[in-house]
């Protein structure tokens, strides 16, 4: 740990070679390739983008531009975002349950469930020892201090 090495080792290029076999490497095939990649890996990763870029000779930026136009493509691994709303005393007093409600509303689920697309995992937890920062919400091990109902939307969106 300690430094961001920015390498991606998610899939061996052989998998991509397989996947690209049915294509000729023409620009017009981009959307279909994106669909295949998402079917195969569940999302479009940085590595996928790099491989598609090399195959189609389009820049990663151009590909991302096209892909992000369609809401069906997603760019982070599914089911990876865990949301924990603290229900300890201090957080409760500072409005923890409103936060929990807001998250539930927003994701359309109750605590203890994963969102239907599997991208969010929503839990309530007991005191995590950060009472001075109450109310707190923990997203992927990252503590968000003095969370507000109004900031929940943004927080969730940023992980969508």
């Amino acid at each position: 740990m300690g430094c961001d090495t920015r390498t991606s080792t998610s899939a061996a290029p052989a998998e991509y070679r397989d996947l690209f076999q049915e294509f000729k490497g023409q620009e017009g095939e981009l959307i279909t390739i994106l669909v295949r990649v998402q079917e195969r890996f569940g999302y479009i990763s940085e590595e996928s983008l790099k491989q598609i870029s090399r195959f189609l000779k389009l820049s990663e930026n151009q590909i991302f531009g096209v892909a992000s136009f369609f809401s069906k493509f997603r760019f982070d691994a599914p089911g990876t975002t865990s949301i924990k709303v603290c229900m300890g005393t201090a957080c409760h007093v500072h409005g923890g349950s409103q936060l929990s409600d807001a998250v539930g509303w927003r994701l359309g689920i109750n605590f203890g469930q994963a969102s239907r697309d599997g991208r969010f995992d929503f839990q309530r937890v007991n005191c995590i020892g950060a009472c001075a920062l109450a109310p707190v919400v923990v997203v992927n091990e990252q503590v968000h201090a003095r969370a507000m109902v109004t900031s929940m939307q943004e927080l969730l969106e940023s992980h969508e």
Partner: peptide, 19 residues
């Protein structure tokens, strides 16, 4: 150089590189 592209759409449309 193909660095800039349109990203997203509608009200969230913005210009920039990948991710």
């Amino acid at each position: 150089a193909n660095v800039l592209a349109y990203k997203n759409r509608g009200r969230k449309a913005i210009i920039g590189p990948a991710f």
